[in-house]
């Protein structure tokens, strides 16, 4: 294959290394090299998704079935089920009319379809998976014993912690009542649990970014400069 040729591999590695360094120059300050790399990133990303959606969604779901349907009309036996594809195809074209200022309002129809579908689906799935399942998992027996009847103190404490934390957190989200008195104190306990959650999420995010940084450094030092193995 052409890209297995050592020359192309080397060229690709140099391009990747220079783009990596170009983006990293932002650590010093905003500069033309960074802006150039950023512009390339924006253009390449847009093109990448444009091409991907064409080959992976539009052709298999719209183009090929439509073509096959039209073909049956001429070759026979004629089938007319493909005509229904005119609806999403038309809605899609209406969406693109957003680019034309005077006809932009037509894009509201496909937008309404997307909003309606997403709202209808999310309403059920969020209530089912986020609200119901989470509540079900939170409402559990707190006092635990093992099979031989021995009290499991630590496990019971942990279950209690999750139950109290969940309900206290929910108290915090009741904004229709002023956080005062007993209600306020429970809500305050809720914020403690929320803070722990945010801290853990923050730690997780930092570790994810660090992992990416290590990956880039590894690429520069190993694949590009061959300084480490």
């Amino acid at each position: 294959m052409w890209m297995d040729h050592p020359g192309w591999v080397l060229f690709g590695t140099w391009v990747a290394a220079l783009f990596t360094l170009g983006i990293a120059t932002f650590l010093y300050k905003d500069n033309p090299v960074y802006k150039f790399c950023e512009a390339v990133f924006v253009g390449i990303s847009a093109g990448y998704w444009f091409v991907s959606y064409f080959w992976q969604t539009l052709l298999p779901k719209l183009g090929y079935p439509f073509y096959a349907g039209v073909k049956t009309v001429f070759v026979g036996p004629a089938e007319w089920g493909w005509l229904v594809l005119l609806i999403p195809g038309t809605l899609g074209m209406m969406m693109l009319l957003r680019l034309v200022p005077k006809a932009g309002w037509i894009a509201r129809w496909p937008l309404a379809f997307i909003v309606g579908y997403t709202a209808g689906l999310r309403l059920i799935t969020f209530l089912q998976s986020n609200a119901m399942t989470q509540l079900q998992n939170s409402v559990q027996p707190v006092v635990r014993y093992n099979e031989s009847g021995q009290f499991l103190g630590w496990e019971s404490f942990n279950i209690l912690l999750v139950t109290v934390g969940t309900f206290a957190g929910l108290f915090y989200f009741f904004f229709s009542q002023e956080h005062k008195g007993v209600f306020g104190r429970v809500a305050r306990v809720g914020t403690w649990f929320l803070m722990i959650t945010f801290g853990a999420a923050f730690g997780y995010t930092v570790m994810g970014r660090m992992s990416l940084l290590i990956g880039r450094l590894d690429f520069l030092l190993a694949d590009w400069l061959h300084l480490i193995r």
Binding site: F126, N130, G165, G169, F173
Partner: peptide, 14 residues
């Protein structure tokens, strides 16, 4: 503790 906070957030989001 993280799960407790996350559950409260998830239920709130839902």
């Amino acid at each position: 503790p993280q799960v407790a906070g996350q559950r409260a957030i998830m239920i709130g989001i839902a």
